[in-house]
Nucleic acid binder design. Structure first.
Length: 587
RNA sequence: GGGCUCGUGGCUUAGCCAGGAUAUAGCGCUGGCCUUCUAAGCCAGACGCCCCGGGUUCGAAUCCCGGCGGGCCCGCCA
């Protein structure tokens, strides 16, 4: 919001002038005060030494020397801080007109920067479970924030259709009978406490994958067949490669369905096998062989030594070919990153914390290849269960599909329990529709709310909490505002600040004023968890306003208050959209 | 063993990167508020050696060093 920048500029100019008059050549910073008696503060502690005066004395002197004018309505000093208040009228009018002016579109001026956000990229060997659910949610939210920062954003999923795991899956899909798979699925469902396994592509396929894994362990013949497939795959056998890719595509179809249910759609899918097929992984090998850091083991495997790149211990040797000369996952990943950089200015990888070393090694290799631009990794810790780490194999797992179902069912119960009391008579279809919006929204909010690097233990009671700092709390405020605007009918917008003087109104406007800054921090700063925190603050401010003043029967203030409600709704709708959550008009 | 990371009321969490004013919020707990715009709400209250020990600084939850505890990583796997 430009009005806030203007205010800050005026404060800086006033402080700089006053310091010049005092003959003091010192630097100063402005900060948002932690007290609510000021809108902007200049701490005077750092100037203390140079000016040989106490911080409080400096603040006093500056406060006396500065005359309020323009957007600055008052200057004071307290505890070594120079405090500035912003003219409430200008603030209210400026913020509301900014919001009305942008028409609900908060996209900043185009930067022309192409930003690639790779996220999710889970191996297409089984359904997405909650342990990895942070990835699509963080990635998608980040992409939405970056778009609002004015960048050209592409989201991308790297599909690992190469290697032993997908080959085993493929063998299973082609050799395990439906009957055997059904029995396996049934038992698995029973162990997980469900009546039956859901009829969804990825869940059906993973049953065959589990059976194939077991058969491979116990049956040497199966093991030999899979080893043979893998050999043919490595040798570039078109038929095997195509079959594996086809299987991965089918599995991916199921994963896309899950992602779509939490409102995640990716712009692009890039297949790992393409980097073998187009020779670019091979090019990487040839270029690295020529590097001064390259070497070969006795068996003939190639590596680069990264000990000069801040990588310590026994991890310094980064292998990029097997002894038979074939490429490794990491080799292909290098080719993939070169590919991404050829079509983007900035590359962001949303990765699990287990990728930290790999990501660092990747960056070092890109440096060796003469690349100055490096990918920006965004790491998150895995979600675990109270009983420990999630493991599909051990059945210690909560699938994202199950969480979605539970959340939607819980939301439906909540809605149904209100029919006839809080909300008007909703049709069954409408209740289902809103339950989906609220349930899936609560999942996204709940996951993106905490810092990615913090480890998270999944608890149903928290995942299904719809009160307080939750997604539904924000959506509820949106629905409330919509309901008021609906009841108000036609009204003419009024941004006259003399009609919006209640402390709750001014407080709400101040929250609205911060949205632009929050988007920059969440997007360019890659700190997506700022967004739900801001949304919650905004929603609280609205609820307090709602409880303190009446809107629809506010007489001469009615239109101004309705305008404030409308502006809050507009910003909140955008916050919700940025979080990938729906903004229900009733609930 | 080495590297990386997290540690804030009973539980969850913001603030830490860019050190400063009474440490943010939610759940839970205690009490109050629906004849009025959606009570998924609002108000009030109780609950904190900011893991421990040093250091830097006028000032440390925040920076540095050393512990302790949890997580992750250390494949010619992907």
């Amino acid at each position: 919001m430009s009005i806030m920048n203007e205010f800050e500029n005026q404060v800086r100019a006033k402080v700089a002038d006053a310091l010049a008059v005092m003959g003091a050549d010192v630097q100063f910073v402005t900060e948002l005060p932690s007290v609510d008696t000021a809108d902007l503060a200049v701490p005077c502690f750092t100037m203390s030494k140079a000016l040989r005066k106490s911080p409080q004395a400096i603040a006093d002197e500056l406060a006396a020397a500065i005359e309020p004018s323009g957007l600055v309505s008052s200057v004071s000093s307290c505890n070594g801080y120079l405090n500035f208040c912003m003219d409430g009228s200008a603030l209210v009018k400026g913020v509301l007109e900014d919001i009305i002016g942008c028409g609900g579109c908060f996209i900043a001026e185009k930067t022309g920067q192409r930003v690639n956000v790779e996220h999710t990229s889970t191996n297409p060997t089984g359904p997405i479970h909650v342990g990895r659910a942070r990835n699509p949610i963080i990635g998608d939210t980040l992409a939405r924030c970056l778009k609002r920062c004015g960048h050209e954003v592409t989201t991308e999923y790297y599909v690992n259709d190469v290697g032993k795991q997908v080959v085993i899956l493929t063998w299973g899909v082609n050799n395990v009978s439906d009957e055997v798979a059904d029995a396996e699925a049934e038992e698995h469902a029973r162990n997980a406490g469900h009546e039956k396994e859901r009829d969804k592509t990825d869940h059906r396929l993973v049953a065959k994958y589990r059976v194939a894994n077991r058969m491979m362990e116990s049956d040497p013949e199966v093991q030999a067949q899979i080893a043979d497939m893998l050999r043919r795959f490595e040798a570039g056998d078109r038929e095997v490669i195509d079959t594996v890719r086809h299987t991965a595509e089918i599995m991916l179809g199921g994963l896309k369905e899950t992602l779509s249910n939490i409102n995640v759609e990716l712009d692009r899918y890039t297949w790992e096998s393409d980097f073998i097929a187009d020779g670019s992984a091979r090019d990487v090998v040839e270029r690295l062989k020529g590097s001064e850091y390259a070497g070969q083991t006795d068996d003939g495997a190639w590596f680069v030594d990264l000990k000069d790149f801040g990588i310590q211990g026994k991890n310094t040797k980064f292998t990029f070919t097997r002894s038979d000369g074939t490429t490794l996952y990491t080799t292909r990943d290098i080719a993939y990153h070169l590919n991404k950089f050829s079509r983007s200015d900035r590359v962001i990888d949303v990765l699990g914390e287990d990728q930290k070393l790999g990501s660092k090694q990747l960056c070092s290799v890109l440096e060796i290849l003469g690349h100055d631009k490096l990918p920006e990794p965004l790491f998150y810790s895995f979600v675990s269960l109270p009983e420990g780490k999630m493991s599909t194999r051990k059945g210690v797992v909560v699938y994202l599909d199950d969480l979605i179902d539970e959340a939607v069912a819980h939301a439906y119960d909540e809605i149904k329990s209100r029919v006839g009391t809080r909300n008007s008579d909703m049709t069954e279809e409408r209740m289902r529709e809103i339950a989906r919006i609220v349930g899936t929204g609560s999942i996204r909010y709940n996951i993106v709310r905490v810092q990615p690097e913090k480890q998270l233990v999944f608890k149903w009671s928290e995942a299904l909490n719809f009160d307080g700092n939750s997604g539904p709390y924000l959506q509820y405020v949106h629905a409330r505002a919509c309901s008021m605007l609906r009841k108000a009918g036609e009204f003419s917008r009024d941004t006259d600040p003399s009609k919006l003087t209640d402390p709750m109104e001014v407080n709400l406007v101040k929250k609205l004023a911060r949205y632009g800054e929050v988007l920059r921090e969440a997007g360019d700063g890659k700190r997506v968890h700022m967004l739900p925190a801001y949304g919650h603050e905004l929603a609280v401010a609205f609820n307090q306003f709602y409880a303190a003043v009446s809107v629809l029967d506010a007489g001469p203030r009615r239109d101004a208050r309705l305008t404030l409600v409308e502006c809050t709704r507009t910003v909140l709708a955008d916050v919700l959209d940025c979080l990938g959550m729906g903004a229900p008009e009733e609930m």
